[in-house]
Write a protein that binds this DNA or RNA. Structure first.
Lengths: 229, 229
DNA sequence: CATCTTAGTGTAGAAGCTACACTAACAAGT
DNA sequence: ACTTGTTAGTGTAGCTTCTACACTAAGATG
């Protein structure tokens, strides 16, 4: 079936930068393209927006289809509309970024992907299209946003140690933080709930596990509080 | 002439939220629609993206065509892709926001606009489409961004008094600021150049005029400095 | 019981933030 | 020339927050 319009139209796609936190670096999920253009090149998961789905829906659908990832924190990043982004025709792409708990996801290649894999940020392969730029922008955004919203918790399991949390910030912000000052600051916000559990399976003193109190955060936010690392 | 595609495609538009600073409030530029849908309703300037222009180009073109405004600070805001935004068909809109120096622009209605006018933020008429939401989002962004980038200067003439600058921040942030503390802070950043001129035509002691040192700001930024009000 | 590794804790000095009020300059009107 | 009205321009003290920094305690392992 064919659809015609009076004026030519750009094709509309979504692309997702999925971040995952590994032991000591931040990773990005890439797929290897099965089809041209950029056949066999690594690229961001993404694809065409259907005419009957919203942009957010399209992003989640493509993520699930191409990599098997679901239930992530997902947020729109930026829309890329340069003329020559895609060699085939004019394609405008709405980019998203997502934060996933690495351990949660058994990734698997599907549809247009030959393979799927996590890559450390400082070891990315050459990417298809303008995807390198999109990743750049996503990192910038994550770095900015992590400081004034509690978005970072999306990268950790529901229960985490303060050391894990500190590590997360050190990795994202790319600078060391002082242990005592970090703990003081976070605990003083009063948004972490101390659980009665400790981490398991470590061969040293086990650290206490905490949860992030999202309810309280939302309440305080409505009262004008603002998270600030 | 007609263009056909294998799958149906959303139409792509841009919409612009243009802010201008008036004596004591922030204004938004609106146009009154000449044509249906929402005929005669007030709406954001905007329109369809041509297949051979980038999104930024489309935004500037529409702004110029519909309101006569050129040479403004323009930045992409967010892309709106709900299914029922437009009663005619699926339309995805890339929203921009712009900062204009009110005095600079002789606005004029053209093309699809019956009229063009500035409206105070707290006196907006009912808007066409989901434009009220877009304006909301733009305000949020402006409020956030004004604090950690020197974007506010885009709303002032090239030479301004410290009182004008303070007024700007008070208006955007919607809270009073302390005169002495404000001046101390801004001058201590060392990004304002004191000119040898003073304001004209006031019937009281004239205040000194300053310029924003963009060059220096960019240099400091590269060295890791970050503007913070 | 010795060893290894990370958890968990306090303080002093520096820097930055807040609150606050008066004099100086200039223009306009008498 | 002087009075009036209006805004410009300026410093400080107290409080809060940030920074830098090192040792003991807990628990696991052999």
């Amino acid at each position: 079936m064919s659809h015609s319009y009076e004026y030519p139209r750009a094709a509309l796609t979504v692309d997702c930068v999925v971040f995952g936190l590994d032991v000591d670096d931040l990773k990005v999920l890439l797929i290897q393209r099965k089809l041209p253009p950029y056949q066999h090149a690594w690229a961001l998961p993404g694809g065409f927006v259907h005419v009957d789905e919203t942009l957010d829906e399209a992003a989640r659908r493509e993520l699930a289809e191409e990599s098997g990832i679901t239930d992530v924190y997902l947020e729109q990043l930026y829309t890329f509309g340069e003329l020559d982004r895609d060699p085939r025709e004019r394609v405008v792409s709405v980019a998203y970024y997502a934060l996933a708990k690495l351990s949660d996801h058994r990734i698997r290649a599907a549809t247009d992907a030959e393979r799927v894999a996590w890559f450390a940020l400082d070891g990315l392969p050459r990417l298809a299209f303008d995807h390198a730029r999109i990743v750049e922008k996503a990192i910038e955004r994550l770095r900015g946003k992590v400081r004034y919203t509690p978005i970072g918790f999306e990268l950790l399991p529901p229960r985490f140690t303060l050391t894990q949390l500190q590590r997360l910030y050190e990795i994202v912000l790319m600078r060391p933080l002082d242990k005592r000052n970090f703990r003081k600051k976070l605990l003083s916000m009063d948004l972490l709930i101390e659980t009665d559990e400790v981490e398991q399976g470590v061969r040293h003193r086990a650290a206490r596990l905490y949860r992030f109190d999202r309810k309280k955060y939302e309440k305080l936010t409505r009262q004008g509080f603002s998270f600030d690392l």
